[in-house]
Design a protein around this nucleic acid. Sequence first.
DNA 1: CAGGATCCCGCTAGATACTG
DNA 2: CAGTATCTAGCGGGATCCTG
Lengths: 153, 153
Amino acid sequence: MPTMTAAQQRAQARADYDAFLAGCPSRQLLARISDKWVALILAALGSDGPHPSGQEGACGQEGAAGPRAMRYSELARRLAGVSQKMLTQTLRTLERDGLVTRTVTPTVPVTVTYELTELGLSLHSLMRSVKEWAETHMSEVLANREEYDTRTA
Amino acid sequence: MPTMTAAQQRAQARADYDAFLAGCPSRQLLARISDKWVALILAALGSDGPHPSGQEGACGQEGAAGPRAMRYSELARRLAGVSQKMLTQTLRTLERDGLVTRTVTPTVPVTVTYELTELGLSLHSLMRSVKEWAETHMSEVLANREEYDTRTA
DNA sequence: CAGGATCCCGCTAGATACTG
DNA sequence: CAGTATCTAGCGGGATCCTG
C-alpha cells in the first residue's frame, strides 16, 4: 500500500498545478482581462465618444480613440448592468495594478475620477487586437458550431 | 408610483446588458480563451516539444513551434491537474468551434487523437501575443501592486 | 482507453441596507 | 456622491462510479 491513495495523489497534483499556474504571468493576465467588467471599464476609459443611450456598436469599444477621465457615477451609467460592489471592486484592483489612477477632488460632495495610466492604455491596445481577432474569426467559429450541431443532432 | 420599482429597473437593465454581451464576439472570445483549460490545451497542442516531467518553462507554452496531434491520455498527462470531466468537456467545445479536430481510430481499444485546425492555430498565435504582453508588463504590474499594498497598509 | 452520468461543495456575484 | 458591510443563492468545477 502506497503512502498516498490514487485520489490523494491526484489532489496533490492539482494543488501543485494550481500553485504553478498562480505564478504564471500569462494566466494572471488572462484572469484579469477575462473578468466580467475589466474589459468594459477599459473600453469605457480607453475610448472616448458621446454617451450613446444604448450599448450598440460593438461592445462599447467604439468611439474616437483617446483616453478619458470619468467619474464613478459616469462609469456606473455607461456600464448599465454593473452593481456598485463589482464596479468599486474592479476599479480597486485596476488601481492596485497600476492600470488606472483614482483621483479624489475634495469638493462637496466629493468627486472621484478614474483615468487609464500608460500601462492601462497599453493593455487597452492589446484588448483591441483581441477584439480584432474576434471580429475576424468569430463568424467562422459560429458557422462551425452550427454545422457541428446539425451534424450531431 | 412607477410601474417598476428601482430594483426591477436595475434588474431589467442587467438582463438587457447580459443579452447584449452574450452576442458580442469579443466577449465570447474572451470567455473562451479565459477558460481554465483552453489556454493549456491550446499550448499543448500548438507547441511541440519533449514531455518535461514538470511544468517548468513558462506555463507550458515553450518548446519548438509546430502543431501536434495528441492522444486523450497524453493530454491528460501533460495537463497534470485536469479532471477527465473538464478535459472532455473542453475538448468537445473546442471541436464544436472548429478549433481542434477529433480523430477516432478503431483499434482495440479505441485511439482518439486531437489536433489543432488552422483556425485553432490562428487562435494559438493570438495567445502568444497575449503571453508576450504578460511577460513584458507583468513585473510592472506586480511592482505597482506591492507599492499599493505598502502604501495603504 | 476514452468518456458519460450523477452528486455535491465552494466561491463569487448580486441584492440590500448603511455611512462619511 | 461614492462608497462599505453583510447575507444569500446559483453555478461551475471536482470527485466518484459506471460503460462501449
